[in-house]
Design a protein around this nucleic acid. Structure first.
Lengths: 213, 213
DNA sequence: GGGAATGTTTACCACTTGGTAAGTAAATCG
DNA sequence: CGATTTACTTACCAAGTGGTAAACATTCCC
């Protein structure tokens, strides 16, 4: 009862705990992102990890709480990825190009990450609001970036918030593309995706942008 | 036992059966497309319809068989939508523009339809192969169209199959955008979506297409 | 060493799931 | 009319779900 906080974790036990939780979160993110939250039972998850379901519930009180933790991790990793993208060198369109390439690269490398975002946007409720909040640093930085680009005449002027939503769903679209390619039996490569996307954008640009009317 | 096939359905009973099955398929497509196959139980579905789960199982022997039927319906409706898009008037880029606009309009009007496609592409297995087969007429027609456009120099030359995959996932991206907008609390309109998309495409075009290197 | 956290398992429970069996009201047909 | 098929409902079941309680093993600390 004497509220002496346990001594600072030295290495062995607390570290092992954190390692276990890390493994669980990692596998959960992968499974939830690719198969969907409701399609993955705690038993499935535990079997993948070679532990029992109760070991998971020891670390998080319910499946829903685990989801929140997974959301936290996904948001963190997304922020890291996007941060990296936004810190690209260069300026103007060459920088934009680097950013877009890098975001597509995330979709190639971590399809489950973006699939998970789509998943929780479907589940809705508090979760999606949480993600919005967690991504706030990225949102404000991107908005600032968009506004500067517009000020300097490199992007046509429009609501940066809406532009961000569009870009956001475009990223999800890239993830979808990876999934679709795999479903059709084509193993996507970064090179092929970028090349294809360039063709597609040329195609769509002419359709939607060029002939104004 | 004498295998006389029941007389051709005149009106009342068989018609009622078909009407019920139609209602079930419609609600199932809506639910599966927005919430996901595993997230919707037969009881949920039945409750939405004001009937019992067993009434559903009377018409289809299992939930999986029902899914197949829903897939059939979704594929049919998609083909109709895409057929309509491909039969647009005009030629060259103006026709391409009409097609793309019309496909985005599908994403606006029937988000559950495209959400469902994404859902079954995630479920994988036979289902996604089925859809590929069901969409074959559309695929071959679109491919022919792409090839003609490339022959006549209106689209940069590339693999039409890959171009189609890109367009396909772009449509899914459009559906995602609608979902995301709704999640964020913005009720999307066709006009806003088209305008925003035009800005986005201008943005991405310059990033991916213009500065070639 | 002994005792207390800590991490995990075995055993179990209430509830939901997809699915079956049997019964029933109404339409159809001889 | 009576018999049969059709379109359902009520009653039920085995399996799987998320979650709890208690036992067990290991590490930590004195």
């Amino acid at each position: 009862m004497a509220a002496v906080i346990t001594s600072p974790p030295k290495g062995s036990r607390a570290a092992r705990t954190r390692a276990t939780e890390d493994r669980i979160l990692s596998v959960a993110l992968e499974s939830f992102g690719t198969k969907g939250f409701d399609s993955v039972s705690l038993d499935d998850l535990a079997a993948d990890l070679g532990i029992t379901k109760q070991a998971i519930l020891y670390h998080w009180s319910s499946k829903r709480v685990l989801l929140d933790a997974v959301i936290d991790r996904a948001a963190l990793e997304l922020i890291i990825e996007f941060d990296g993208a936004l810190s690209e060198e260069g300026s103007g369109w060459s920088r934009v190009e680097s950013i877009v390439r890098r975001i597509f690269r995330v979709a190639m490398r971590r399809p489950e990450l973006l699939g998970f975002i789509r998943e929780i946007s479907r589940i809705g409720g508090d979760a999606s609001l949480r993600v919005t909040a967690d991504l706030e640093p990225f949102v404000s930085r991107a908005t600032t970036y968009f506004e500067r680009e517009m000020d300097e005449g490199r992007i046509r002027r429009c609501d940066p918030g809406l532009l961000l939503v569009s870009a956001y769903s475009t990223v999800l679209g890239a993830a979808t593309e990876v999934e679709v390619l795999r479903a059709v039996g084509i193993e996507p490569t970064l090179r092929s995706t970028v090349v294809r996307r360039r063709e597609l954008l040329a195609f769509l640009h002419a359709a939607m942008v060029a002939p104004q009317g």
